[in-house]
Nucleic acid binder design. Structure first.
Length: 395
DNA sequence: TTTCTGTATAAAT
DNA sequence: TATACAGAAA
């Protein structure tokens, strides 16, 4: 979702850029946004589990556009959900499910237009879809990494540590994450708009001189972000004015307590957590080949850091980063693929025509749970309660 | 003046 | 899904 209204606010420091200007540079790509766009041309197939590669082709077309201009892409995939966002994720999953049900109803009623609309809203860019693309990337020798948690944090890590020259994304969150250079809205012709952190001082609409990175981040959080809802009647403009005047979020909140605006319980505590999620979220360090914090946490920190994404054993996070292990279920893809093959064979042996294969990501077999528990080192129940395990079922 | 809400539309071919 | 725009509400 990002920070609503942030990009329009910064439009005076947004500059058009073309792919030619990126020659010989390395860019991190928010690949889920490509997969989402690519999925539009084949939403029905993806929903029904019918074979298609249009979404993969779309991504590879974009990859080749970059390669043809001698730009080196690193494709960054989303990984697991942060505990803080699990509610939102389940809501989205429910909405997709409802859209799928409507799509099937419309289809049965012969209303293919309405059905198609619902299918498009029902598409889930699942880890399996990412896995399919990754198989192509391996063959084509394209760099990629699956983040342990959010791709945004992973791309910010690459940018902050100078492992890439720019990040290509649609998500304004990369700005509060502290990414140095971002290219938004890059189209199939390689044209987009460039944002550079260093240009912030020159913004006309609103004056950011004297603003620190932390102030910019706090402004974004006050205006409402994925990790914390804004207080009623506080948007970007008011958030800007408050941070400019009071300099720190503690002082802003102290001031707000003297106004008629109601501050929900734990707001200040949750605000701190939101700051930390932007600054210290867990990401994959491909040099250390291990899970690290986006930026180091203070040594004297004694708070529970689970909200930054639970820590993962090195072997597991490596498996996730390479795309061999499902980041949501922590189950190696080989198991799922074996299961799908098994069911396919069962179908072809006793049926006359292609029966669509639905992959239901809400259940799993005992053997897979056992294996993944061994990998994660958690109890059966802990994994079960996290849900989202996989089994192939036949429609 | 700013924020909030709803509606339309584009994305892909 | 995300953005843009319009009009209402505060």
């Amino acid at each position: 979702m990002g920070i609503q209204g942030l990009l329009p606010l910064l439009k005076t420091v947004m500059a058009p850029i073309t792919i030619e200007e990126l020659r010989d540079q390395t860019v991190a790509i928010d690949v889920y946004s490509w997969l989402h766009k690519g999925a539009f041309s084949c939403s029905i197939e993806l929903c029904k589990g019918l074979p298609t590669s249009r979404h993969i082709d779309y991504c590879m077309h974009r990859v080749n556009l970059l390669r043809n201009h001698s730009v080196k892409p690193i494709l960054v995939f989303d990984g697991g959900s942060l505990p803080m966002k699990i509610d939102k994720e389940t809501k989205r999953a429910r909405a997709r499910k409802e859209n799928l049900e409507w799509a099937l109803k419309h289809e049965a009623a012969g209303n293919s237009f309405a059905a198609h609309e619902c299918f498009q809203k029902a598409v889930d860019i699942s880890p399996s879809i990412a896995w399919e693309l990754i198989q192509v990337l391996k063959k084509e020798n394209i760099d990629y990494v699956v983040a342990p948690y959010e791709a945004d944090a992973q791309m910010a890590f690459l940018s902050i540590n100078k492992l890439v020259d720019a990040v290509i994304t649609e998500d304004s969150d990369l700005i509060p994450f502290g990414c140095h250079r971002i290219i938004f809205k890059m189209d199939k012709f390689g044209q987009g708009v460039e944002f550079k952190c260093s240009m912030l001082d020159k913004n006309k609409d609103i004056d950011f001189t004297g603003f620190t990175k932390t102030m910019l981040l706090e402004m974004c959080i006050f205006s409402g972000c994925d990790y914390l809802q804004s207080l009623p009647s506080i948007g970007l403009k008011r958030a800007y004015a408050l941070v400019k005047k009071y300099k720190s979020y503690e002082k802003v909140i102290k001031h707000l307590r003297c106004t008629s605006i109601a501050i929900p319980p734990h707001y200040e505590e949750n605000f701190k957590k939101a700051i930390w999620t932007f600054q210290h979220q867990r990401v994959y360090d491909s040099v250390k080949e291990d899970i690290v914090h986006l930026s180091n946490i203070p040594h004297d920190c004694d708070i529970d850091l689970e909200f930054l994404g639970p820590w993962l054993p090195q072997k597991l996070v490596q498996g996730i980063a390479k795309g061999d292990v499902d980041p949501l279920t922590k189950i190696p893809f080989q198991f799922k693929m074996a299961a799908i093959k098994r069911y396919r064979n069962m179908e072809s042996s006793n049926d006359e025509q292609n029966i669509p294969l639905m992959v239901d990501e809400s259940q799993e077999t005992e053997a897979h749970i056992q294996h993944s528990n061994a990998m994660v080192g958690t109890s059966n129940n802990a994994l079960r309660s996290e849900g989202q395990i996989i089994v192939a079922t036949v429609m």
